[in-house]
């Protein structure tokens, strides 16, 4: 996880960018309250609650790593401002590091 996922639309992309070749959903485990609404909202069923706990004691949601369709339902189903970020295919992301 990088700090950028906690930023906003205006987060910088200094250091160059790359273009994603697949849809990716990223859940920040520390910002997730484990309500599971994203899991219920996900049409392909590629989100689940982790068996592990975050520092607040919630089971955070996680992406299986494959099968995201980029529909964005999880983003709108999630009540937290910054817990879920959805990167669609073709999105420009920083060249270095994770997203």
């Amino acid at each position: 996880m990088t700090s950028q996922s906690r930023g906003t639309d205006t987060a910088g992309t200094a250091g160059g960018t790359r273009v994603l070749e697949a849809h990716v959903t990223v859940v920040d485990p520390e910002l997730c309250k484990g309500c599971g609404l994203c899991v219920a909202a996900c049409p392909p069923g590629v989100l689940s609650l982790a068996p592990s706990f975050n520092s607040k004691g919630y089971h955070p949601a996680r992406y299986s790593g494959a099968g995201c369709t980029g529909c964005g339902f999880c983003f709108y189903a999630c009540p937290e401002p910054a817990a879920v970020t959805v990167y669609k295919k073709g999105a420009e992301v920083p060249a270095e590091g994770g997203i």
Binding site: G72, V86, A91
Partner: peptide, 15 residues
């Protein structure tokens, strides 16, 4: 929903 990235909207404070 044509945005390429769906993330925390700028209508929120950063912190």
């Amino acid at each position: 929903m044509a945005k390429k990235i769906l993330r925390k909207p700028a209508g929120f404070y950063d912190v």
